[in-house]
Design a protein around this nucleic acid. Structure first.
Lengths: 332, 332
DNA sequence: GGCGCCTCTTTGAACGTTCACTTCATCCGG
DNA sequence: CCGGATGAAGTGAACGTTCAAAGAGGCGCC
């Protein structure tokens, strides 16, 4: 009810100590006697004191905020929600917050980054949808702006901080799984070459197929990521001389499309087994549900925030990076 | 390159005026002579001055930030991304930002709201997924915390600020459209009663059916919002004595499920026409694409931010609300 | 006993902005 | 030529926190 703001000075008076001691109780407890700490803590509770973030930010010259650009259709598909949730969660645990912003055209995008940093609104950024020759990482380094990528930059990957999920390993796992279930003609359905992550996923499939001594001919399908063209591509592959009995897909969108394209046999069962990527709820809810490769988003977010905080703490240090393994979620 | 921070004082010196005059140029231009304004503006540009947000926030006791709770699976489906984008966009235009946060369990949820406000991290909140007897609006009012709902609270709706999309009107439009295309047996597929928004959408279908003098028997299907059970429910309705020739759906998830459930005839065409709700990309990409009722998200976000800003400006004023009309996007 | 050292606490200042008030200059009517 | 009104610009203080440095007190060592 709009009670008057209670400040650190109020707490200090009630606890019979100085402002600084209250501050120390909160920020550097080891400097304060246990007895004093108790007194201050109880004063804090009694007054329901909560430190003012703007004042703190002003003084320490940091916003404790991570900027995230949310762009219109979002290349991440329905992964975005779940990633944002995980990111906000991990950030909070580290005393940070996630701030959303948008920028219509590419030329205002960099201006937006600059603005947010110059005004002290954010301390840095998390970047997603890292393109094959994305100009942003280099630009950020030039400006000295802290950032962590979700997805590895393909060029100069040692120079930037990033966290990625090993797509190659994921699709290879999917192939192993299908082989163990008796499949031998396993097709791949994913993005055309040039996306980076898509290439990795396709490479994992190819590698695993070779490892099992299986043929790739007539098994590779690429198309835009929409259920419609995925369905069409699946149908095309199924119409070939040696039709696949299973599909490994670059995303759940492809997978849902593939399921559509397969159609059902007399018993109502899909004519081919489909394994997706991302483990989206939509895929899990199909009947029968899709197996899918799950990205460990909470772990991804944790690492991103961790790397971010370290970047802030020591901007001069060599950027680190983390490659996490996804996990196949089998559903039958 | 970590150049030394340029402050309002630097600008003042360069322009040969006082701090306050620079501040006025930015915040109250009418108080300043055009000639002075020009001099100050050019100094600002030369120094690339950007006002520090923390300092401003501290002084004016406002964060110019709207809090948004992003919860794990998100009842909004893939609407969430697009809504967040729109919200961030509208907020920016009004000088605000959107800050994400999470809270695991319900008991920490209120603590989280409190914390963000008490620390001055946010000025208020945008609430989504307003339940039929949601405890939050009343709680916020009691605490004097500004908020705007996306979706109307069903109880005490005059007491809170909200923006909603008229679901009733949307499904009625869908029925009109299908009738104009010659359909007479039009089924509804949506949530079980008790969600509020779901009830509206079903009511719109029912009302329009009656208006056209069409029978409702064997036409109402409710089930959880997942493609699997939607498909099953659609199959069940199609197996009835007078099977529907079209489906109006409460969401695109239901719609995609219905499409699955219909299967295809010999020519590969779906056995019933399906109209979705939300106009998600997934629905548009099916072949043939789904018609769907589009929520005007940019307008929704604009109104939400507008109402929010007004709440802040005059917390005592009677809360306003806006009901927007969705628009059917026909696709054939 | 005097000195240095360590631990805990306090003090004044500073972060960069805007508010409230004052000063200064100009203009106009009488 | 004066008095008051009007408008532009400047001044000191304040927002609430943490930093840097200094103060107080106790302890051990020579």
């Amino acid at each position: 009810m709009a009670r008057p703001t209670v400040t650190i000075a109020d707490v200090a008076v009630l606890a019979g100590v100085s402002r600084q001691t209250v501050s120390n109780v909160l920020n550097a407890p080891q400097r304060v006697t246990p007895a004093t700490t108790v007194r201050v803590q109880s004063a804090i509770q009694k007054l329901e004191y909560r430190p003012n973030r703007s004042a703190r930010n002003l003084r320490v010259r940091a916003s404790h905020t991570i900027g995230f650009r949310i762009n219109s259709p979002g290349g991440l598909g329905d992964l975005l929600d779940r990633f944002l949730h995980a990111l906000a969660n991990s950030a909070q645990a580290a005393g940070y917050h996630v701030l959303l912003f948008t920028s219509a055209d590419p030329q205002t995008e960099f201006a937006a980054y600059d603005d947010l940093v110059q005004t002290g609104t954010v301390d840095g950024f998390v970047l997603t949808d890292i393109g094959i020759a994305d100009p942003r990482p280099a630009w950020f380094v030039r400006r000295g702006i802290p950032f962590v990528c979700f997805g590895q930059p393909r060029r100069n990957r040692g120079e930037y901080a990033w966290v990625d999920v090993d797509g190659d390993h994921g699709t290879a796992q999917a192939v192993d799984y299908l082989v163990s279930r008796g499949h031998r003609r396993i097709a791949y359905l994913g993005w055309p070459p040039g996306t980076g992550y898509g290439d990795d996923r396709q490479a994992g499939w190819r590698r695993a197929m070779r490892r099992h001594g299986l043929s790739l001919t007539g098994m590779a399908g690429t198309c835009p990521q929409d259920a419609g063209s995925a369905a069409a591509t699946a149908r095309r592959l199924l119409a070939g001389k040696t039709p696949p009995t299973a599909f490994v897909c670059g995303s759940d969108t492809f997978a849902i499309g593939a399921r559509f394209g397969c159609g059902a046999d007399a018993a109502g069962q899909p004519r081919a087994t489909v394994v997706g990527f991302d483990d989206s709820p939509a895929a899990a809810f199909l009947t029968p549900p899709l197996s899918s490769v799950r990205q460990p988003l909470p772990a991804v977010a944790d690492h991103i925030v961790d790397l971010f905080v370290r970047r802030i703490a020591d901007p001069g240090a060599r950027p680190e990076s983390v490659l996490l393994r996804p996990e196949l979620v089998p559903r039958d």
